[in-house]
């Protein structure tokens, strides 16, 4: 597989470590009343789509960027890749 790194161009997936669903970047607010159940859902309940999926890949043998890669789980087609850092900013502000 080839991952189009937003800074480094096309890179072989062997350079990366896979983590899982990109929703993991949206950590729940621990101060909320129902924090326990939100954390439970955050950690254990994931969608398992047949089709487009956003997922986290770490460029461990490269620049150590965490990327959010959009991949079709049926065809392995990679639709895009963004820096998780940038996406994290957007979701926080």
């Amino acid at each position: 597989m080839i991952i189009p790194h937003p800074l480094l161009g096309p890179r072989d997936s062997q350079e990366f470590v896979y983590m899982g669903d990109a929703s993991l970047i949206k950590r729940p607010d621990p101060k909320k009343q129902n924090a326990q159940s939100e954390f439970y859902e955050y950690l254990y309940l994931r969608n398992n789509p047949a089709g487009t999926h956003k997922e986290l890949w770490f460029h461990e043998q490269g620049d150590r960027s965490w990327l959010i890669v959009t991949r079709n789980t049926l065809t392995h087609e990679v639709i895009g890749a963004e820096l998780a850092h940038d996406m994290g900013f957007e979701s926080k502000d």
């Binding site: 986290l56 770490f58 965490w66 850092h85 994290g88």
Partner: peptide, 10 residues
């Protein structure tokens, strides 16, 4: 790095 980049980018 995950905490730094993904959870607390600020």
């Amino acid at each position: 790095e995950f905490c730094r980049q993904c959870l607390w980018p600020n």
